[in-house]
Design a binder for these strands. Structure first.
Length: 421
RNA sequence: GGUGAGGUGGAUGAGAGGCUGAAAUCAGCAGUUUGCUAAACUGCCGUACUGGUUAAACGGUACCGAGGGUUCGAAUCCCUCCCUCACCGCCA
């Protein structure tokens, strides 16, 4: 949610930036300013009214103390009409505030100046590409076939237990999950992140705070009986750690491993084969709460962190700077990481690292005190480091040989085996 | 699930219709003193909206878990809800 002051002071700038995101309802910017103006004028009269009431109340108190009962009684009448008016104004004000919030909530975050214009994933900019695209043996197969051959995970079994998109990992496949999680966590902890294990369900306030609500409820599983949402990413509970706080030391760095639950309504075809897109998966997420002037350095640091992981896993990867049209609603700048899946011969997204600037902190009221002791909104950032399924897919595919699948050296201490045979 | 107690500023904790945006203490910040550290002393020290100003100063309003109500006036009285704690029951 953009700050109303920002909109008020830089309306044209905001609009031209939103255009980069291909945002069509630019009139919402003007609407916000109009409603905000109305809101302020109502508040002004209301405050003035209440002030008069307060003065009268004090006077009556004085009169009673002096024993001037009759005078006090007559003074009471003066308050009645003011009080009625205040009630009306309060109702109007509440309506205005609600209206304003409804508008603000529909305006996406303004993209940073680095964001390229564009509409589709084709318009994303490849910032860099690292690693050799492997040439696989003739007999090479996609990961879902490898899973069958080596009994690593079972999608049909998941269908029986739950439904499509809920894999059951087995044996070395299960151990591989655990190994990757531990590997990712250890690296993040080594980089100064505080490990947390958050709840895997959140309430509506938390889902609103990071921007999942009000618009994206269709993407989350919902527990109606208790009004909880299954987390689509640890970003949601972890970022909400600081909700409604004035934080002292910046940056704050959190890392969390969690399962992620996504309904993925509308997905189909080759995109959902094997582990390419599933409803439940494991992910390690890094989150930083940063000083506004340092958040882009923090973003770079997080990008470097993710790169380091991919290099250690010996996977060819590329980094994309997302264009305006492909970015999420709340992000100001996003880098996507893709690894090459050699048997499928395609790039798979394994991480998305974003700076939300004040978009989330404004919703969550996360502030810090600046040098002048003024409270200011922090910047929030998060990124996957990393999401498991597609890492597993490319790991299996890229490192397959005729007599098994090799495990990267860095991962071997965690898997306890060097090869899947 | 049942019963009881309670939710006040960063923390502890007072207040029980007007003198309370809120005592006191601790923590924090600034300064004075002091061989160093420590201690002592002085001052400051909630948030949001808003008026005002180049910026401040200064001013208004709201907020004592949330939402309603009573009253000229509510942290304080009444109602509803939420949450926390304790004990019992159930249970990993």
């Amino acid at each position: 949610m953009l700050e109303i002051a920002t909109i008020r002071n830089n309306a044209e700038e905001v609009k031209s930036r939103l255009a980069v995101k291909n945002f069509k309802d630019l009139h919402l910017v003007d609407d916000a300013i109009t409603v905000d103006g109305k809101r302020r004028s109502i508040q002004l009269t209301l405050d003035d009214n209440l002030n008069k009431q307060n003065i009268i109340a004090k006077e009556i108190g004085e009169l009673f103390k002096q024993g001037k009962k009759a005078e006090a009684e007559s003074r009471k009448n003066d308050s009645a009409s003011l009080k009625e008016k205040s009630k009306e104004l309060e109702a109007e004000l509440a309506k205005c505030e609600e209206e304003l919030k409804d508008i603000l909530v529909r305006i996406p975050n303004t993209p940073s100046k680095l964001v390229p214009a564009g509409k589709t994933p084709e318009d994303n900019v490849v910032v860099k590409q690292v690693g050799e695209i492997p040439t696989l043996p003739e007999t090479a197969v996609p990961h879902w076939d490898l899973a069958k051959k080596y009994d690593l995970f079972d999608l049909e079994l998941g269908v029986k237990i739950t439904g499509a998109g809920f894999p059951v990992y087995k044996g070395k496949g299960a151990k591989l999950q655990r190994a990757l999680v531990a590997f990712f966590l250890d690296h993040a902890i080594g980089a100064g992140y505080l490990e947390v294990i958050p709840p895997h369900m959140v309430n509506a306030e938390s889902a609103f705070g990071t921007g999942q609500l009000p618009d994206k409820e269709g993407q989350m599983y919902y527990i109606g009986l208790d009004q909880f949402y299954m987390i689509p990413t640890a970003e949601v509970p972890v970022t909400n750690i600081v909700r409604d706080e004035i934080v002292d030391a910046l940056p704050k760095k959190f890392v969390a491993h969690s399962p992620c639950f996504r309904r993925e309504a509308g997905s189909y075809g080759k995109d959902v084969r094997g582990l390419n897109r599933v409803h439940q998966f494991e992910k390690v997420e890094i989150v930083q709460i940063a000083h506004p002037e340092k958040s882009y350095d923090v973003l770079d640091e997080m990008v470097k962190h993710v790169e380091g992981l991919l290099q250690k896993l010996e996977l060819p990867y590329r980094i994309l700077r997302l264009c305006g049209g492909d970015m999420s609603f709340g992000s100001a700048l996003t880098y996507d990481f893709e690894v090459y899946s050699a048997a499928q011969k395609r790039w798979l997204e394994v991480s998305s690292v974003s700076n939300f600037e004040t978009f989330q902190s404004n919703r969550m009221k996360v502030r810090f005190r600046d040098e002048q002791k003024k409270t200011r909104l922090v910047h929030t950032l998060n990124g996957s480091a990393l999401a498991l399924p597609r890492i597993v897919a490319s790991l299996l595919e890229n490192h397959q040989t005729n007599d098994g699948i090799n495990i990267p050296t860095a991962l071997q201490p965690y898997t306890g085996y060097v090869k899947i045979v």
